[in-house]
Design a protein around this nucleic acid. Sequence first.
DNA 1: TATTGTTATACTCTATAACTATA
DNA 2: TATAGTTATAGAGTATAACAATA
Lengths: 125, 125
Amino acid sequence: MQVSFAVQVVLTRVAAQQDLSLTQLRLLGILRDRTPSMAAIADFLELDRSSITGLIDRAERRGLVARRPSPSDARVTLVEATAVGLELASRIGAEVGASIEQLLAGSSATARASIEKLAASLPQP
Amino acid sequence: MQVSFAVQVVLTRVAAQQDLSLTQLRLLGILRDRTPSMAAIADFLELDRSSITGLIDRAERRGLVARRPSPSDARVTLVEATAVGLELASRIGAEVGASIEQLLAGSSATARASIEKLAASLPQP
DNA sequence: TATTGTTATACTCTATAACTATA
DNA sequence: TATAGTTATAGAGTATAACAATA
C-alpha cells in the first residue's frame, strides 16, 4: 500500500505540473496508440459512458483530443489525440518514467525483479 | 505502476462497498488512533483546509465522526470517530488487509521481503 | 429491440479568496 | 499580527435516468 500511494503521488504530481487530473493523464496514455470509441474509453477507465462525455468535452476544449465520426457505424464517435495532445502525452510518459526510476533508485536488482514478477501475476492491466 | 493501480482498485472497491470515497476511507484510517484538529487532517491528507470542512461535514452527517472543541485553544476544532465510525474503520481495515493478502497470494517470501524493503526506503508515509 | 452517445440532474471532492473569532 | 476554521464560489469528476439516433 505504501508503494502504491508513493506511485500515485508521483503520477498526481506529474499530472498537476501539466494542469491535468489523473483521469486526463490516463486518457492521454490510452490515446497514445489508439483511437477508441467513447464506449471503449469508458471500458478502459471503468467509468460510466455519461462520465466520458464531459471528460472528452474538457479535453477537447483544451485542444488535446478531437472527436471523429466512425466510418462504419454512424452511432459511434471515435476519439483521437491531437498533435498537441500526443506531444504532451509523450512528455508526461518520459517524466513519469524518470520519477518512477528515481523512486526505485535505492532498490536492488532482485527487488525490482520481484516487483516485476508480482506485476506479471496481477489481473490484466 | 501496475502494482500501484492494482492496490488502488482494491481500496476503491472496498470503499465503494461501504458507500465511501477513497478520501473518506483515508479519513477513517487516520481517526482510528488519533483525534486530530482540522488543520492536522489537512496536513495528513495534503488538502486545503477549506476542503476539510466539507469532508468532515459529510462524514458527520453520516454519523461517522464528531467535532469537539479543543480544551486548550478556542480556535481549534478536534475531530474524533464515533463508535459507528470506529467499527466501520475496523471492518474496512480487515477487508483491505484480506484483499491485499489475496493480491500477494502468488508471490514468494523473497518477493514480499523486497517490497517491504522498497516501502521502507520510500519517503515518510 | 438493442446499442451509442448525450443531456439533465445531483453529489463528492477540491481549490482560491474573503471572512470571523481567537491567540 | 498570525492562526484556525468557515463560507462563498467555481470547476472537475462521477453516477443515474431519460432520451434521440442508428443498427
